[in-house]
């Protein structure tokens, strides 16, 4: 699949051609730094949500930069950083094949079933 090999990181940030990653810049752009995707848990009990991305030379600095850039207003209690290049994303071209088959299986949802009137705890 050419799409998945030439692009990385979908979802919020998404689609950075791998040709722009550091390998290309080695020796050229002095100090070019990889891209990191940032996920923030806004409070305990909630899942981490994609907040954006940033550049950092390594994971340690990425985490610290993420703290400064994405949680200045107490937006989070926990941060994940993930190398953008490590994200494997589904392709928009495969959207139908991936997601449509779930469309006709209404029996997976509780609202598919009739509950006799007056009964609770169901």
């Amino acid at each position: 699949m050419t799409e998945t090999s030439s692009f990385t990181a979908e979802g919020g940030h998404g689609a950075v051609p791998t040709s722009c990653e550091v390998e290309v810049d080695e020796g050229g752009h002095a100090g070019a730094q990889p891209l990191w995707e940032v996920f923030v848990r806004s409070r305990r009990g909630l899942s981490h949500t994609h907040a954006g991305s940033l550049h950092a030379p390594d994971a340690h600095m990425a985490l610290r930069n993420a703290r400064d850039v994405y949680t200045r207003r107490q937006e989070g209690v926990s941060i994940w950083v993930v190398p953008a290049a490590a994200v494997v994303a589904s392709s928009p071209d495969e959207k139908d094949a991936f997601f449509d088959p779930a469309g006709d299986k209404a029996y997976r949802h509780p609202t598919f079933y009739d509950v006799p009137e007056g009964l609770t705890h169901l």
């Binding site: 940030h13 689609a15 950075v16 051609p17 070019a32 891209l35 954006g52 991305s53 200045r72």
Partner: peptide
């Protein structure tokens, strides 16, 4: 910070910040 958010958004279109 706003500059950073925006460069990130631009990078999703296949350009990089250094460029």
């Amino acid at each position: 910070g706003h500059g950073l958010y925006l460069y990130s958004a631009a990078e999703t279109l296949g350009v990089d910040r250094d460029e």
